[in-house]
């Protein structure tokens, strides 16, 4: 079946001021600037494909967030097994062409404790400050599920050092520089310099 082509029907105008918010949300879901950029691109592409249908909604960005959550779930399912190597792969130099996220408090490291769905609930509820009803609508689940997942998530996070002891130094992954596409998957544990 063919779809009508032409200009983007306001897609660029709508998402240009919102791309940063989507990238931030993607970072909170993935914990990695490179994967967040990939996820944001995937999401925007999928939304663009159905843009003629979506643009009539009052909150296309909410739809985009739902697409992103689903795409991230698939990313988890498809993730290949990581292979540990002795020497970490070389990282690319920072570039304006790639996304960068500065995470001063080590938020991504803390959220990494949570499974993907629980993480999505916690991020939407507390980092994006949505109401329980809004989170439930976005994730297509009940408010009760949001409450229970949020409570479980908070309980897990409570034991994270950065939260349990705010005076403790932040997690080492607090600053996420841009990374090259070929080495976005963390293949090896970081080694401390001797």
């Amino acid at each position: 079946m063919r779809t009508g082509e032409g200009d983007d029907g306001g897609f660029t105008a709508y998402f240009t001021p919102r791309a940063g918010e989507l990238l931030r949300f993607a970072y909170l879901l993935t914990g990695d600037a490179g994967e967040a950029e990939d996820l944001t691109q995937t999401t925007l592409t999928r939304v663009f494909v159905v843009w003629p249908r979506v643009r009539g909604h009052d909150r296309p960005d909410a739809y985009a967030r739902r697409v992103m959550v689903n795409a991230n779930t698939h990313r988890f399912r498809r993730r290949v097994r990581h292979v540990l190597v002795d020497v970490p792969p070389e990282r690319a130099e920072p570039s304006a062409q790639l996304a960068a996220v500065e995470d001063r408090a080590g938020l991504a490291a803390a959220l990494a404790m949570l499974p993907s769905r629980q993480r999505a609930v916690v991020v939407l509820r507390y980092c994006e400050d949505l109401s329980e009803a809004a989170v439930a609508a976005l994730l297509r689940c009940s408010v009760g599920t949001v409450k229970s997942q949020a409570a479980k998530g908070l309980a897990k996070l409570r034991i994270h050092p950065a939260i349990a002891d705010p005076a403790a130094p932040p997690a080492p992954s607090q600053v996420r520089p841009p990374v090259g596409r070929r080495d976005r998957t963390p293949l090896a544990p970081r080694k401390e310099a001797p």
Binding site: T45, L98, A100, V101, R104, L107
Partner: peptide
């Protein structure tokens, strides 16, 4: 803590994000 940490996130959006997506 989550709200405060999220508020400290500083995100730089790549220039070509929308173009590449399209």
């Amino acid at each position: 803590w989550l709200r405060a940490a999220a508020g400290q996130l500083d995100v730089r959006t790549p220039a070509e994000l929308l173009t590449v997506a399209r």
